[in-house]
């Protein structure tokens, strides 16, 4: 059994918050965007950070929010 973090919008599960953030910024549908808006975050800002600055700044910023927001799911991985 392991702790997985669930995307607040879709079914995606990740073992790390940063990986979940990567998933999130790769999604381009309205539902994902609207949830970001509801958290006062901007897609544009996060992506610009990630792609024009070095390091994982965009992902890390979103990961911090997801640490609070993403539900923890226990999944048996065999």
């Amino acid at each position: 059994m392991a702790d997985w973090y669930k995307c607040p919008v879709c079914r995606k599960l990740s073992l790390e918050h940063q990986d979940l953030a990567r998933h999130y910024l790769g999604q381009t549908d309205k539902k994902h965007k609207d949830w970001l808006k509801s958290k006062n975050l901007s897609y544009s800002h996060l992506i610009t950070m990630q792609v024009t600055e070095f390091g994982n700044k965009g992902y890390d910023a979103l990961a911090k929010v997801l640490e609070k927001e993403a539900a923890v799911v226990q999944v048996d991985v065999k």
Partner: peptide, 25 residues
């Protein structure tokens, strides 16, 4: 491209928010 991803940029395809077509990490 840097204009296209702005939050208020016009959308070229529906359901592709911020005009993001594909991403890779």
């Amino acid at each position: 491209p840097l204009e296209a991803i702005k939050d208020d940029a016009p959308l070229i395809h529906e359901d592709f928010e911020n005009n993001i077509n594909a991403t890779r990490h």
